[in-house]
Amino acid sequence: MTVDVGAQLRKGVVEFCVLGLLEREPMYGWQLSDRLVKAGMIASIGTLYPMLSRLRNQGLVTAYDEASASGPVRKYYRLTAEGDAQLETFRLQWGPFAATVHDLVGKDES
């Protein structure tokens, strides 16, 4: 049985990538999806909306409607204070975690 390592790694961090993008600016779903697909973090927009729903239920993001000059009203997502705190916790743990994993599985380059 072959394990899709990339999928397992993405699964663990993609929600924090969404929080990181929303920390920069509020975004609507298609914007988020485009950025995440281009970065190889999700396969399609279909995986984004269930994730946004979970993040909203956890109180990490909120949504609001905004008129669009180029079409229908768009639902924008933004980070909440709780989401910001969760993202900061992730950042504090990510560096040491990644370094530990590298120490355990990395090859000596000597």
Results as ranks from 00 to 15, higher is better:
residue 66 E to D: 09
residue 36 L to N: 02
residue 35 R to M: 10
residue 29 G to N: 04
residue 23 E to L: 14
residue 46 G to S: 12
residue 6 G to Q: 14
residue 1 M to I: 11
residue 99 A to L: 15
residue 109 E to H: 06
residue 36 L to K: 01
residue 54 R to L: 08
residue 25 E to M: 05
residue 102 H to A: 15
residue 84 D to T: 12
residue 84 D to V: 02
residue 58 Q to V: 01
residue 74 R to V: 10
residue 24 R to M: 11
residue 16 F to W: 08
residue 51 M to N: 00
residue 77 Y to S: 05
residue 93 Q to K: 13
residue 94 W to N: 07
residue 13 V to T: 14
residue 7 A to W: 10
residue 49 Y to S: 13
residue 24 R to G: 03
residue 110 S to V: 08
residue 106 G to M: 08
residue 35 R to P: 00
residue 10 R to S: 10
residue 28 Y to N: 14
residue 47 T to W: 12
residue 79 L to G: 01
residue 54 R to P: 04
residue 57 N to Y: 04
residue 58 Q to L: 13
residue 20 G to P: 03
residue 87 L to F: 10
residue 51 M to K: 11
residue 101 V to H: 03
residue 32 L to R: 02
residue 81 A to D: 13
residue 73 V to F: 06
residue 62 T to F: 04
residue 30 W to Q: 13
residue 43 A to F: 10
residue 70 S to M: 05
residue 106 G to K: 07
residue 84 D to R: 15
residue 10 R to L: 05
residue 1 M to L: 10
residue 17 C to V: 13
residue 82 E to Y: 04
residue 8 Q to E: 15
residue 35 R to W: 02
residue 93 Q to S: 12
residue 98 A to R: 13
residue 15 E to C: 06
residue 75 K to Y: 02
residue 21 L to D: 02
residue 101 V to C: 11
residue 93 Q to H: 13
residue 75 K to T: 15
residue 33 S to W: 03
residue 72 P to Y: 05
residue 35 R to C: 04
residue 19 L to M: 00
residue 22 L to Q: 00
residue 96 P to V: 02
residue 78 R to I: 01
residue 110 S to W: 07
residue 21 L to V: 07
residue 27 M to P: 01
residue 55 L to P: 01
residue 70 S to F: 08
residue 2 T to N: 11
residue 97 F to E: 03
residue 66 E to V: 08
residue 5 V to N: 06
residue 19 L to D: 00
residue 55 L to Q: 04
residue 26 P to F: 07
residue 18 V to A: 05
residue 25 E to H: 11
residue 31 Q to D: 14
residue 103 D to W: 06
residue 90 F to Q: 07
residue 52 L to Y: 03
residue 3 V to W: 09
residue 97 F to Y: 12
residue 32 L to A: 04
